[in-house]
Design a protein around this nucleic acid. Structure first.
Length: 423
RNA sequence: GGAGAGUUGGCAGAGUGGUCGAUUGCGGCGGUCUUGAAAACCGUUGUACCGAGAGGUACCGGGGGUUCGAAUCCCUCACUCUCCGCCA
C-alpha cells in the first residue's frame, strides 16, 4: 500500500511512475487527495469537540468531589449537544478513512526508475543471458515423459489421492527433491541467510500483512473452520515475523531463508503451459527474504541476483535474467527480476525465480519500521526472491541433462543426491 | 473435548468509575563520581495521528455498550496459560 503522505507530496511523480504500468491513476489520486482533505478537516473538528468534552467531564468530576451537585448537573446538560456533534463527526471521519483505504488498496507500487514502460511480458528486457543452450543428437524427451520413464514422479497417483497438481515424487525423484532443498538451504546459509522452518498455515492478519488479503484470497487455500490460510510462499510467514515491529537502530540488515511447500489454487488455463511440473497446486520452494535500510535496497537486490545466478551455474543450467517491464511487474513490487532457465525438450524458457524489491509497499501494511538517528521512525524496505522453486528446476535438470545413458546429476548436487545418474 | 485462570508500556508487575498514558522494579539512554569500569546517585525513556505553532486526539488483546467521565462495569470475539482427557 502506498503511503498517503507520499501521495500528498509526490503526486505527479507517482502518476508518471504508474503510467509505466499502463495505468492512469490521476483520477484515483485526485479522489484520494480530496477525501484526505475532508478527512483532515473533519478530524480536526472532531478532536476539538473531544477536547471540549474531556474538559467538561473533568470539571464535573471536580464539582462532584466538592459536593456541588447542582452545578455538576448543569454542566452535564451541556455535554449532550457536543456529544451529538462528536458522534456525527466520528462517523464522517471513519467513513472518509475507509474510502481512502479502499482506494489505496487499488494502487500498485510505483515502479523503480530502472523499470521500462510496457504492457506485458513481451516487453521485458533481457539483462543477462548465460550458459549453453543444450543440443541433442537424439530426440529429447519432455520431463513428464522422463519422469514416467525413470519412475520419478507419478502425476496420476496424485490425481487419485488428491487432485490435479499434487504429484507424488518417488524413489530417485523424491531423493532429487530432497537434495535440491538441502543444496539451496546450504547455499543460502553460505550467503548469510538465517534458516527458519515456519508454519505452513497463517492467520488472516499475516495474509493482510504481505498483501495476499483482502483481494487475492481466491489464490490461497483456506481452512474455514479455523480461519487459517495455507501459505502460497514462505514469504508470508517469514516476512510476517517482523509485522508490527520497530527495529531499535538504523544499523540492520536482516536476511532470512526457509524451505516450505507452497500451496496455490491458481485455477487458470489448462494445456501445454501447465503440463507436468510446469504449474502445480503444491510445490516446494526455498525463499530468501531481506529487510533492509532504504539506502541498502539496491545493493541487496544485486546480492540476491548474484546468489540465484550462482545456484543456476552450479546446477549447470542455461538461464537468462529479465527485468520486468511496468505492465508485468507484480502489484506490490517496485522492481522485479525474473530468472528463466531454458528447457531443452520443451524448447522454451521457464520462470524459476523472481527477485523483487517492494520498498515500503509491504512494510507500510506490516508496520515494519526502524528508529533512525533522529529518533524518528521510518519504514523499512523489504525484498524477497525464490532461491529456488523446485518443480521447474527439476524439469530443467531432467530435460537438459538427459543423455542416452540417463539423466546426469550436476556435480554440485551429487553429494546431496548420493548418485550421479538416473537411469 | 471438559474445567478454570488470564491478556496493562522493551520486560516484570500495580492499578475495580474521575487530575491515569497509567505507581513501582528491571532494562535502555543521558549525566555526576572514577584513570577506566562497576556500584551508588540524579535525570530521562511508548506509538500513531491532527495542528503553522501553542497544543490537542486516540490507543491498557480486538469490537461493541453503559456513563458527563471507563484500564477499571456490561456484552461479544480472539488469543495465552494451568489441570483433566485424547494423541504423533
Amino acid at each position: 500500500m502506498l503511503e498517503i503522505a507520499r501521495i500528498r507530496s509526490e503526486k505527479t511523480a507517482i502518476i508518471e511512475g504508474l503510467k509505466k504500468r499502463n495505468i492512469d491513476a490521476s483520477l484515483t489520486i485526485d479522489s484520494i487527495l480530496e477525501l484526505d482533505m475532508k478527512w483532515r478537516n473533519s478530524k480536526t473538528d472532531l478532536e476539538r469537540y473531544a477536547a471540549e468534552l474531556n474538559q467538561l467531564a473533568k470539571s464535573i468530576g471536580i464539582l462532584m468531589k466538592e459536593g456541588k451537585q447542582e452545578e455538576a448537573n448543569t454542566t452535564k446538560e451541556q455535554t449532550a449537544a457536543l456529544k451529538a456533534k462528536e458522534n456525527e463527526l466520528k462517523i464522517a471521519v471513519d467513513d472518509f478513512e475507509k474510502q481512502i483505504t479502499q482506494l489505496l488498496y487499488t494502487l500498485p507500487n510505483v515502479p523503480n526508475e530502472l523499470v521500462k514502460a510496457g504492457a506485458n511480458e513481451t516487453e521485458n528486457e533481457t539483462v543477462v543471458t548465460s550458459g549453453e543452450i543444450p543440443t541433442f543428437n537424439f530426440s529429447p524427451l519432455a520431463h513428464w515423459d522422463l519422469a514416467k520413464k525413470f519412475d520419478l514422479i507419478d502425476f496420476e497417483l496424485g490425481v487419485k489421492v488428491t487432485g490435479a497438481g499434487f504429484p507424488f515424487y518417488k524413489g530417485k525423484g523424491a531423493k532429487l527433491q530432497r537434495a535440491l532443498i538441502t543444496f539451496f538451504l546450504d547455499e543460502a546459509e553460505k550467503s548469510g541467510y538465517e534458516e527458519f522452518i515456519p508454519p505452513l498455515v497463517v492467520n488472516e492478519a499475516s495474509g493482510i500483512g504481505t498483501g495476499q488479503l483482502p483481494d487475492k484470497e481466491g489464490q490461497m487455500y483456506h481452512c474455514t473452520i479455523d480461519d487459517f490460510y495455507l501459505i502460497p510462499t514462505a514469504e508470508v510467514p517469514l516476512t510476517n515475523i517482523y509485522r508490527d515491529t520497530i527495529l531499535p537502530s538504523e544499523d540492520f540488515s536482516i536476511k532470512l531463508t526457509g524451505y516450505t511447500p507452497c500451496f496455490r489454487r491458481e485455477a487458470g488455463s489448462y494445456g501445454k503451459d501447465v503440463r507436468g511440473l510446469n504449474r502445480l497446486h503444491q510445490f516446494d520452494k526455498v525463499e530468501i527474504v531481506r529487510i533492509e535500510h532504504p539506502s541498502n535496497t539496491a545493493k541487496a537486490l544485486e546480492e540476491m541476483l548474484e546468489h540465484v545466478k550462482n545456484l543456476l551455474e552450479k546446477l549447470e543450467l542455461p538461464y537468462r535474467i529479465l527485468r520486468l517491464c511496468g505492465g508485468d511487474t507484480g502489484f506490490a513490487s517496485a522492481m522485479t527480476y525474473d530468472f528463466e532457465v531454458y528447457s531443452g525438450a520443451q524448447e522454451k524458457w521457464l520462470e524459476v525465480s523472481s527477485c523483487s524489491r517492494f520498498d515500503t509497499f509491504q512494510s507500510n501494511r506490516l508496520k515494519l519500521r526502524f528508529k533512525g538517528e533522529d529518533k524518528k521512525t521510518q519504514l523499512c524496505h523489504t525484498l524477497n526472491g525464490s532461491a529456488l522453486a523446485l518443480p521447474r528446476i527439476v524439469a530443467a535438470i531432467l530435460e537438459n541433462h538427459q543423455s542416452e545413458d540417463g539423466i546426469k546429476i550436476p556435480k554440485a548436487l551429487q553429494k546431496y543426491t548420493g548418485f550421479d545418474i538416473i537411469n
